[in-house]
Design a protein around this nucleic acid. Structure first.
Lengths: 179, 179
DNA sequence: AGATATCTATCTATCGATAGGTAGTTTTTG
DNA sequence: CAAAAACTACCTATCGATAGATAGATATCT
């Protein structure tokens, strides 16, 4: 069935979490936003850890789908990397918000264990995809280069948030290495 | 005088804030940690906004002193950039924690105004220093390159936190551009 | 004595979480 | 087929814990 309520809970929670991290979203605030009671959210997500974990999982899944689409587009390396960067750029530009898992990573130490794990899985998926792309295009040290690119994306988003201007993302981004 | 208590409040607050951001440190927790009562902290820092702002200011000041020291070392570009990266690397390795202002930047939207301003000043100081270093060494587009380098540092820290391993910082870091 | 620093005690607001209830739908069973 | 049971998706009400903040008393130090 994939209840509409659950989707709205997730959407609201993601919105809040991407603004200020794990401690910046609450059952009450979500409830108020979508017009139900906070107790009802506990019906769908027993604990906050549970909700945040689901949040990270769905976020990762959504990203993975985009990654798959880029792969299937069969563009050249430069094109695929550009499309990849756009994923982060538009996540920033459209929502004016940080990457959910980027924020979670920054506050890793205070996250419940399941959320930590889900967050790490996001980063692993990114690195795996990038590494595969690079190595199939004959780039040496593909794995390390993948880590660099991912750091570049997250760092660029963070700087853009610091100055509240998505232009900084474009400035901070660097895809010239493989030209 | 520069009260010892104030320093201990700041140290404890920084420790907590660098673990989980603005909402991850509290007057009560700081008080417990340094052995006083939370009301006593309000005597030194009237509000949480005030404390967090002071936190960011001192953090920036400390960083600026290091930057000055690097400048005065009069090493070549490559050496100074390496020393610069070490600032972030050791902040990560020694404390096992994220950059305070990096974390604040990520959650910019939920920060009180003064904290936002203080956070932005950290980034501006970094970019100014980097840009000066690059342009005096004949690098073109020094300002944009400075933004890239800063994003690289913050991104590398974030990735390292994601995997709870400082090795990822070294992997994510890229100073090869100006070789 | 007066300034500085810290205390006790308390307030209001909010947090995640739980207990128990209910209307409506679906499934099971005699 | 219809009654009984169970389930879904919410609700109200409340819990203990914690948040930042304040007033006023007390201690310490010059």
């Amino acid at each position: 069935m994939s209840s509409d309520t659950i989707d709205r809970i997730i959407a609201s929670a993601e919105n809040q979490a991407r603004s200020g991290g794990y401690n910046a979203f609450s059952f009450r605030e979500i409830a108020k936003e979508i017009g139900i009671k906070s107790a009802s959210i506990h019906y769908h997500f027993p604990t906050k850890e549970n909700l945040a974990t689901e949040l990270a999982k769905r976020y990762t899944e959504k990203f993975n789908q985009y990654l798959l689409a880029i792969t299937e587009s069969r563009g050249n390396l430069q094109q695929q990397l550009s499309d990849y960067a756009d994923l982060f750029y538009f996540a920033l530009k459209n929502d004016q918000k940080m990457c959910l898992c980027g924020l979670f990573a920054a506050e890793m130490d205070v996250l419940p264990e399941d959320v930590q794990t889900a967050t790490r899985l996001f980063f692993e998926a990114q690195i795996t995809w990038l590494s595969t792309l690079l190595s199939t295009n004959g780039i040496a040290s593909a794995d390390t280069e993948a880590v660099k690119l991912l750091a570049n994306m997250e760092g660029a988003m963070l700087i853009a948030k610091a100055f509240d201007s998505e232009d900084y993302f474009k400035r901070a981004m660097d895809l010239t290495v493989y030209k």
